[in-house]
Design a protein around this nucleic acid. Sequence first.
DNA 1: GGCAATACGATACTGCTCGTATCCTACTCG
DNA 2: CGAGTAGGATACGAGCAGTATCGTATTGCC
Lengths: 205, 205
Amino acid sequence: MAEDQGGDVNQGKKTRRRGAALERAILQAAAEELAEVGYSNLTMDAVAARAGTSKNVIYRRWPNRAALSVAAYRQMLPTDPKDTPNAGDLRSDALALLNRANDRLSSPAGKILREILSDIQNDPDRVREIHGQLVNVGVAPWLTILARATARGEVGPEALTPRVASVAVDLLRNEYVINGVTKVPASTIIEIVDQIFLPLVRAHR
Amino acid sequence: MAEDQGGDVNQGKKTRRRGAALERAILQAAAEELAEVGYSNLTMDAVAARAGTSKNVIYRRWPNRAALSVAAYRQMLPTDPKDTPNAGDLRSDALALLNRANDRLSSPAGKILREILSDIQNDPDRVREIHGQLVNVGVAPWLTILARATARGEVGPEALTPRVASVAVDLLRNEYVINGVTKVPASTIIEIVDQIFLPLVRAHR
DNA sequence: GGCAATACGATACTGCTCGTATCCTACTCG
DNA sequence: CGAGTAGGATACGAGCAGTATCGTATTGCC
């Protein structure tokens, strides 16, 4: 068994890594640093040291700290699909989805994402990179539960737009932007669903 | 030949400022720096130089760059009340308010605000300081136009909650968080009003 | 199998900026 | 009018991004 996983530190360093293997080792190291100290405290020196390489090699692959962090963050995502809730009524499904989003956003990974997002506002390339990858994915399950609700006659088909579908998550995200780091309380989740989401989709009928 | 050794052309400070006057001068200098180079490029050295003082004096009043910037930002706000639009129908008023918010958010001041907000997420004191001052103020006019619409019978009184009132601005703010710096296009404004805000408030009836 | 090109890794260095320390001096207040 | 306080100039330590150099392991080509 060769230690082709860049995982643990190769104390002996028999061989000098290159190409893809090295790249994986760097991303792994960067992801670990992100998890341990967060984006704002992540330093290129630390990543290089942890990966057992030098900053030079990193800068040959990513133009700056932000780009490396974005790439590393994408590595550390769960990627398990997590089936869409289907309780039989729209309110339960919406609450489940929104609570799930809240868990994601308040998790360490969520904190990291928000740190990165805020630091790259003036780097359109990076923003687009994260946008398509991370933000949009959340809309699909909402469209699914709305489609089921439509089939049940709970709401009209006019509610099946991305804007309507994403409204709850958008408002939740806004809570984090406005209030800072703390986790959004359950009461706010319920408020968003009962005062905004449900009245809105039922209006489209 | 420079006669500026020691004493220059005698616009030299006759008197050494102190207390409130000095504080105002520093905030003024900081506000100018914010306007010229933005928050992320604002340096304490530059502020001190522009104010004709030294960093020492600044740090005696504010604990760090973020706190100074927040204080300076509050100085540079317009504070002109800007009367609430009253066109006679809710849609026009909502569009007017939302366009106004869009102008504010896309202005240099808006960019600065977003830069600051993103940099102080781990500084709860600072977040609260900005929150109460800047974020909440936007809700009042929305409650006003909703109240007028209620009086006209356009919507029911259940729509008169802060959450409903702020939903359009919240969604707009979210656009900036997600999409980065560019100004949100008019089509998005209309979408928010016609797909979200109006159906929502009419549902409360 | 040998050799040149290339990528790695170590180290050092520049440049920038925050925040602090020192020391002198102008001004205020008793 | 003298002591204490606050302002101002300057220097400094520390941390970190990003760049430059240089020797060397590795690889791919012949």
